[in-house]
Design a protein around this nucleic acid. Structure first.
Lengths: 197, 197
DNA sequence: AGTCGATCCAACCAAGCAGTTGGCTAGAGG
DNA sequence: CCTCTAGCCAACTGCTTGGTTGGATCGACT
């Protein structure tokens, strides 16, 4: 129907994702988003309302992508953790968006928290199944911790550089960290399967 | 000598810490810092140069506090992890400052990265000693991961709420998470002491 | 060709912003 | 009592920012 309204929207979302990932909600500049997208600024307000709502759009789009890309492999939960690590290394924007969001909203509930909950509930269910146990609170604790260690290097690059050694962005260093994660995960999973070993 | 110049500085630093922890570097408002401190805005520029330099002052001050408060207990490294967890729960500002910094500088080196490195080197040394092993890269990997899980709940409150259940800010829920961390840490430490068990 | 509705955009606006300035105040030294 | 210096602050500046608006453009349908 319209010339390319869907395409304009997409271009804006892409530009907004890059801008928000880089500068956060407060630091992002609406003018810059419009410029990057090659689209007039006014379109942002026509399509998305305002800056914060645009951020929400970007975030929910990115979250869908994450859950689609990072799937739970049936054979090895440790590989799942490594996949999360790889994903955050390869595409840092999503984690950065989540972190900006976390800092922005703090302990206040985020918009559409309920909808996101169901997505994570599925992941937890899968995780428990692959472990051959019930999705108890303890399993949730474990899953949450494992996501944490997978994401921690991308979350705190300064600290990573300082503790792990200055060169953390070589293939070799990443492979070493990946191995550590797989190893670490295997052991902690074993201990959950046979509690109080 | 001067009426209370040191006091004025201190008031500014306190106000700045609160403001930066809440809003980050881009989101912080210099006017608001001055207002909170009950001090004229111009003093900030006289004492600290500009907004970003003020942030650095606040951060290094806070880091000194952390290293002073959270010490490595001689008997139990797992308790060290739990202490970190407790500290970040009780005083979320420091972690938030670190996160804002991480997002702001990304993969560029942060100011005075070298100085911070020595402080962490000490921690690593202590950690290795308490484990009765050499401070190898593997031990650094472990320490880094443990700091990650200790901080993860405060880093990602939204995700924590969703995965661990909506009530994460009760004493009970915190105690449960703390227990998980201690347990988790003990096991992973045991596995480092006896590798390839 | 002409009307209509939606899409688009250059120019605009008021508010908010980091950073500055010029003068006021108070206390120490004489 | 005067001077000099350092600390202080109200008011200002110039620029940036999120958000708006009035009209130009264009395709679809009659």
């Amino acid at each position: 129907m319209p010339p390319d309204t869907a395409r304009t929207r997409a271009k804006l979302l892409d530009a907004a994702r890059a801008e928000f990932a880089e500068h956060g909600i407060a630091g992002a500049r609406v003018d810059r988003i419009a410029l990057r997208a090659g689209v007039n600024k006014e379109r942002i307000y026509a399509y998305f309302g305002n800056k914060e709502q645009l951020f929400q759009h970007v975030l929910s789009e990115s979250l869908q992508e994450l859950t689609a890309v990072v799937t739970m492999p049936s054979d090895d939960p440790a590989e799942y953790v490594a996949q999360i690590y790889d994903f955050y290394i390869a595409r840092p924007e999503l984690l950065r968006l989540l972190l900006w969001e976390a800092l922005y909203y703090g302990n206040e509930p985020i918009p559409d928290e309920d909808r996101r909950a169901t997505s994570y509930a599925v992941k937890l269910q899968e995780f428990a199944e692959h472990l051959g146990v019930q999705p108890t609170p303890d399993v949730a604790q474990l899953l949450f911790s494992l996501i944490g260690i997978a994401a921690w290097q991308s979350t705190m690059p300064q600290m990573a550089r300082i503790i792990l050694g200055t060169e953390t962005d070589t293939d070799q260093a990443r492979a070493r960290r990946r191995e550590h994660l797989v190893d670490f995960t295997r052991r902690s999973i074993a201990s959950v399967k046979q509690p109080q070993a």
